[in-house]
């Protein structure tokens, strides 16, 4: 039984790591803009397809595929912010950008459907079929890669936010945009930077998720609901909270599968979400921002 518990722990951390990568982008954008980007899921999917085509068809180099996915995500983030959020921000409406991102999401899904077709792709990397056995425990090299890349990305992002001037400026904008502007910070540039970083993260998570997900034009949609739940459980806009919540959700999934039934996964995750909303609506770690003061 101990082996099974440990094995499900590994499974949960792998899935949790992937959820964290997807959710981090959402929480970064929310933290700075207090807006939800529904097209985030489709950037994840596009990242997965970019990595697939580079890795499977062109070069066979998965790492080059991940790099291209990051690039594709970053460019899309820049485009979405420039085309939607920047013009709509001036109207000071919370609803318009939200609806616009739903529109972008539907547009991207259908564009991918036309380009890539509806038939699921088998995204196999040189690492996804190589199984490592340690005693009775097993995991694929792809799982190990997911854990390593997730950990490195989270650490880099954390260091960027805590120790660099740009990171501190981002946090200042997320806490109080007007005061940050008075201090000489250009909020618009930082919002653009946030979008690019968040979307590049989405692209990268797509590249890592591709071999795990059922890769179709709707692939990102299947993880985005969990990512939203993680953002809420972790505390809107809070990076540390998102990381903890992502890992909790991953572990809930694997242990629910083991001890209850996979059919209970969503019930368990969303029950936690409801409990958090009722007991601690600010999430695991509350983010300081102007309207909370």
């Amino acid at each position: 039984m101990l082996t099974v518990i440990l094995q499900q722990g590994i499974n949960g951390i792998v899935m949790g790591g992937l959820y964290v990568l997807v959710a981090l982008g959402l929480t970064l954008i929310y933290g700075v803009l207090v807006q939800i980007n529904f097209a985030h899921a489709d950037i994840v999917t596009l990242g997965a397809f970019a990595a697939y085509f580079i890795a499977q068809l062109l070069s066979g180099n998965y790492f080059l595929g991940i790099a291209v996915a990051i690039l594709v995500g970053g460019v899309l983030g820049w485009l979405i912010n420039a085309a939607i959020f920047t013009p709509l921000r001036e109207q000071r409406s919370e609803l318009l950008p939200l609806i616009a991102t739903i529109g972008v999401s539907i547009m991207l899904q259908n564009a991918m459907l036309l380009l890539f077709g509806p038939i699921p792709y088998a995204f196999n990397t040189p690492y996804s079929s190589r199984v490592i056995h340690i005693g009775s425990l097993f995991f694929t090299l792809q799982n190990l890669l997911i854990i390593l890349v997730s950990t490195a990305t989270i650490a880099l992002l954390y260091a960027f936010m805590k120790f660099t001037f740009l990171g501190k400026a981002l946090r200042a904008v997320s806490q109080d945009r007007d005061t940050a502007a008075l201090m000489g910070i250009n909020p618009n540039s930082l919002i653009m930077l946030t979008f690019i970083i968040a979307s590049a993260l989405a692209g990268m998570s797509g590249a890592l998720l591709g071999p795990v997900l059922v890769l179709t034009p709707f692939a990102g949609t299947s993880v985005i609901v969990k990512a939203f739940a993680i953002v809420i459980i972790g505390g809107f806009g809070n990076v540390e909270g998102t990381i903890i919540a992502g890992l909790i959700v991953g572990l809930i999934e694997s242990y629910t599968t083991q001890f209850l039934d996979p059919g209970w996964i969503d019930i368990a995750v969303f029950a936690l979400l409801l409990i958090m909303l009722a007991v601690r609506p600010t999430g695991l770690i509350a983010e300081k921002r102007a309207e909370n003061v």
């Binding site: 099974v4 094995q7 499900q8 499974n11 949960g12 792998v14 899935m15 799982n143 998720l209 795990v212 997900l213 059922v214 299947s222 993880v223 609901v225 999934e253 694997s254 599968t257 083991q258 039934d261 996979p262 059919g263 996964i265 969503d266």
Partner: peptide, 20 residues
């Protein structure tokens, strides 16, 4: 008898359960 929703992506946890 293991049922699952269409939104389940990763089946490693289910395979772990079956392996036991």
């Amino acid at each position: 008898d293991i049922g699952f929703g269409r939104d389940v992506n990763d089946f490693t946890a289910i395979a772990t359960r079956i392996a036991g």
